[in-house]
Design a binder for these strands. Structure first.
Length: 471
RNA sequence: GUCCCCAUCGUCUAGCCAGGCCUAGGACACCGGCCUUUCACGCCGGCGACGCGGGUUCGAAUCCCGCUGGGGACGCCA
């Protein structure tokens, strides 16, 4: 293991993990795996009012489903409070931080005034030099330098300069004694020995503040790489309205983790013209230098196409383990079905090339797994008509007599009927399809018969005939 | 408003750093055709972009400046 690389994914547990977060996690994971370094998960839960245990579990479950394994953690920042307090005290002792007694209301009012005047809203430094220490609620602010520039070196964008005058004295500890993000992120990254901070570019403007903190704490700064964000179709930040659905929702919609990962890796990263990457290939080729810095729009159609590719190329038995929960979810199978993976995998070869999601696949597999066939009413009235009955009867009879029950034999047999009757193949295939599957859409008709087996096929054909007679 | 980032087909991107090989390549989507027992798959073809204006240069998608546009940040959120 390469000790010189250690990266982290640091989600805040204030909701589910969405696509944007997954991509940040993925890039960190790939960076660690490519360099043989370590990937750690750290839960940024310092906002007590919004963090939930449920979110933490959902985030971790998402990571596991996606196969993004971590080497250390998950650490929780709240468990490191003593350390954070110690560092705050250290800053206080060195006169690099100070208590501020301004109330939120006061601050709010000043902010409004500044905005009215067209100024950048900033703390005015009121408590920066006050010498009294009243026994009143207060926050701790970092005593930022007043002038100069901070140069942040970004691995993807080069040097970015910020005017210190744009910054103000940020709060590092709240009134309730808990530390704030910009402060803990510095302390934790430094303590944990994080070497590269790869995160969304919404953090780029926080970086000068953090850089200043690193400097005044005498910590070496890590390297920074700010990747672009993923935008919704309207080109605004991903939100609940967009594709910012929970990662686990994609699982429910029938997406494969590999497809999602593959889709996401190509958002902002490329390796020539290659579109499909195995994990090994991604790890092998992943490189910060082939990352684009412009924002990417989330495109569900391409994700769906990739999903279809993965459904087609994943071995049936392997696909079965993802397919089974979807079959249950879609009500095709009962939770207590007791079927072995081999049995679940049976219809997959016939369904894979016509399914974009596992949900579609489950619907297509209904005829195979159900005991009682459910008919599509339109299909029934259109194809199960009196003139179809004799044909269906002949198919049933012929199948009964078929010694060699193979796809080829079935084909030869069905074609012989078509020839004898002097009809088009579709005239026979469609009613048969409806009789066997209840739908007008299904795998190839020989495959359907083969899949169902002789007895079930004959039984369904017969009951279709019986139904026609009741007309 | 201030600061920061970004800018190639509708979308993801290659090309840009080391200017000519670019009448700009690939992929998704879309359109047309072929295949065909349904739906698909697949195959073939088509549509479609260097935001604008200045420079630098023999030559610019590529370098520089400005503009415009988009995004982000400006929380006792992360």
């Amino acid at each position: 293991m390469n000790d010189s690389v250690k990266v982290r994914f640091a989600p805040s547990p204030t909701g589910f993990l969405h696509i944007g977060g997954v991509r940040t996690a993925l890039f960190n994971w790939l960076y660690a795996r490519h360099h043989g370094g370590k990937f750690v998960i750290r839960i940024e839960d310092t906002d007590l009012s919004r963090s939930t245990e449920e979110s933490i579990q959902e985030i971790l479950e998402s990571m596991r489903w996606l196969g993004l394994d971590w080497d250390e953690g998950p650490f929780r920042q709240m468990e490191r409070q003593d350390r954070h307090k110690e560092v705050v005290q250290h800053l206080l002792d060195q006169d690099k931080a100070y208590p501020c007694f301004c109330t939120p209301e006061e601050l709010e009012e000043r902010k409004k005034e500044q905005q009215k005047k067209g100024e950048k809203p900033k703390y005015n430094g009121k408590c920066r030099n006050r010498s009294d220490r009243p026994d009143a609620p207060h926050v701790i602010r970092f005593k930022s330098p007043l002038e100069g520039t901070v140069r942040v070196h970004d691995l993807l964008r080069g040097n970015v300069d910020f005017d210190i005058a744009e910054l103000d004295d940020l709060i590092i500890q709240r009134t309730d004694g808990t530390p704030t993000y910009n402060f803990v992120v510095v302390v934790d990254d430094a303590d944990m020995g994080i070497t590269q901070v790869i995160r969304g570019d919404d953090h780029l403007s926080n970086t000068p503040r953090q850089a200043l903190l690193y400097d005044s704490l005498d910590y070496p700064r890590p390297q920074f790489a700010h990747i672009s964000m993923i935008l919704g179709e309207d080109k605004t930040r991903l939100s609940k309205r967009h594709g910012a659905t929970s990662t686990l929702a994609y699982r429910e919609m029938g997406y494969l983790p590999d497809a999602l990962i593959n889709y996401l890796v190509r958002l902002g990263w490329s390796h020539g013209d290659q579109e499909i990457f195995s994990r090994e290939e991604m790890i092998k080729h992943f490189d910060l230098s082939s990352i684009t810095t412009s924002a990417a729009v989330f495109n569900p159609e391409k994700l769906q196409w990739l999903n279809a590719q993965y459904i087609k190329s994943t071995p049936p038995l392997e696909l079965a383990q993802h397919f089974e929960p979807i079959l249950v979810q879609e009500g095709v199978l009962k939770e207590s079905h007791g079927l072995r993976p081999e049995e679940i995998a049976k219809p997959i070869p016939y369904l894979a090339e016509r399914s974009k999601t596992l949900v579609e696949m489950a619907q297509g597999a209904e005829f195979y797994f159900c005991d009682e066939l459910v008919f599509d009413e339109k299909a029934k009235t259109k194809f199960l008509k009196p003139e179809a009955a004799p044909l269906l009867g002949k198919v049933a009879e012929g199948l009964q007599a078929l010694a060699d029950f193979s796809s080829e034999a079935i084909e030869t047999f069905l074609k012989s009927i078509v020839e004898a009757e002097g009809i088009k193949f579709g005239k026979l295939a469609q009613p048969t399809r409806v009789a066997l599957t209840g739908k007008t859409v299904s795998p190839g008709i020989y495959d359907v018969i083969l899949l169902l087996g002789k007895d079930r096929s004959i039984q369904r054909l017969r009951s279709a005939c019986e139904w026609i007679e009741t007309l």
